[in-house]
Nucleic acid binder design. Structure first.
Lengths: 209, 209
DNA sequence: GGCGCATAAATTGGTGCCAATTTTGGATAA
DNA sequence: TTATCCAAAATTGGCACCAATTTATGCGCC
């Protein structure tokens, strides 16, 4: 293992170690099932022991890693049932605020959504898996933010992190990715036409994949 | 401040310090806005410094306390807007699974719910605020568990903790408590009659208070 | 008498060290 | 050759100490 950010070893740590580890888990760098040794993380992210412990504890609380006393922490194996349950939760929440999203969508907001949809579409061709992941996140975050319920937005953001630990296994085919992109545009169109039911159905399709 | 559980100072710590602090916050023992000094918590709960730090960090993640660098941790002030947003989330989730609750409700499950509703009703007369809080939690947990989505149950349990930090301010009047109890029975009846819409409307009323 | 400043107390937050437990490696015996 | 047991290395997890920052106290000055 090599240090990820050697240049920032001295700089003021503006970004939490937790997010760094989380990112590496979700991009597959730290494989599901693998053990996270404190020494390794310490060296890899150039931080102290307490930082590593705090990060591992936080990830345990988020149920992204599992803690076995006196053994250590290891990345959770992807659980199909759990992923489906989280999807159901997302469907309930996101379709539940579909009407409010449409109500609050100004022309500017719609334009911004279309821009983000374009951005996602652009990185399909030349972009890493991480780029795709981030662009997708950005679109959905902007979409959901229109509902006006900040708590709901942060909640969905949080539970999304719980299951997409293996994006590779989810987005295996390029066809699926392009389908996702199309659905993004469908959502924007539905909002533009103020068609609540249409928006809901697209959201359900999109989350269920 | 005195030690809460002196008898268990030597025993194997089966319950997390985090839950102890959380309980004291939600029952109003640790008032909103008050500063949580590490040395006090350490003595009060009879645990070491690392335990206190972990607990405070976890509560910060749950956004129940706020952390000010180099100043300490203090209990979040109750936020009306946020409470309303969390209520909206609960409404979306709990009404969203109302049909599944009814589908999965066996005769035994209904009997159990009625027993828990009775229990809540019983502690209205002779019971502390904590007893009420716990009985209410037990009923709603049992009710929600019928939906079959464990993730959703734990999620709702989690977000409930975020806002009910001042139960005193919520359940000021005894009339309101008795109204809650009545609504519990209404829910059980609606489940018994397999009336989804009735159940949904009661849930909405119950959460919105 | 009230305000400002310097000093002292208190609290947080980090670092390092050491005990407890587990895993690994190897030697011995069946 | 394979299974078992013992010892050594490695890892986790807690404890105690110390630096940095903030808050309280008291003195002097206006």
């Amino acid at each position: 293992m090599k240090t990820v950010k050697p240049k920032e070893s001295e700089a003021a740590q503006t970004v939490d170690v937790t997010d760094l580890i989380l990112n590496d888990i979700q991009t597959g760098v730290l494989a599901p099932g693998s053990w996270l040794k404190q020494i390794d993380l310490e060296r890899r992210y150039g931080c102290g022991r307490p930082d590593v412990r705090r990060a591992l504890d936080r990830l345990t609380q988020k149920r992204i890693v599992e803690h076995v006393p006196n053994r250590g922490y290891h990345v959770f194996e992807p659980d199909g049932d759990r992923a489906r349950q989280v999807s159901e939760i997302r469907i309930l929440l996101e379709t539940g605020v579909a009407d409010r999203i449409i109500d609050n969508a100004t022309a500017g907001a719609i334009a911004e959504l279309r821009r983000l949809a374009d951005q996602f579409d652009a990185v399909i061709l030349d972009g890493t898996t991480i780029d795709l992941y981030e662009a997708n996140l950005a679109f959905h975050h902007a979409l959901l933010s229109l509902c006006g319920n900040d708590e709901l937005v942060s909640l969905v953001t949080e539970i999304r992190q719980r299951t997409s630990s293996a994006p590779v296994s989810q987005w295996i085919t390029r066809a699926r990715i392009q389908q996702s992109s199309l659905e993004h545009y469908e959502m924007v169109d539905a909002i533009n036409m103020k068609d609540v039911e249409k928006l809901k159905s697209v959201i359900v399709r999109h989350i269920r994949q």
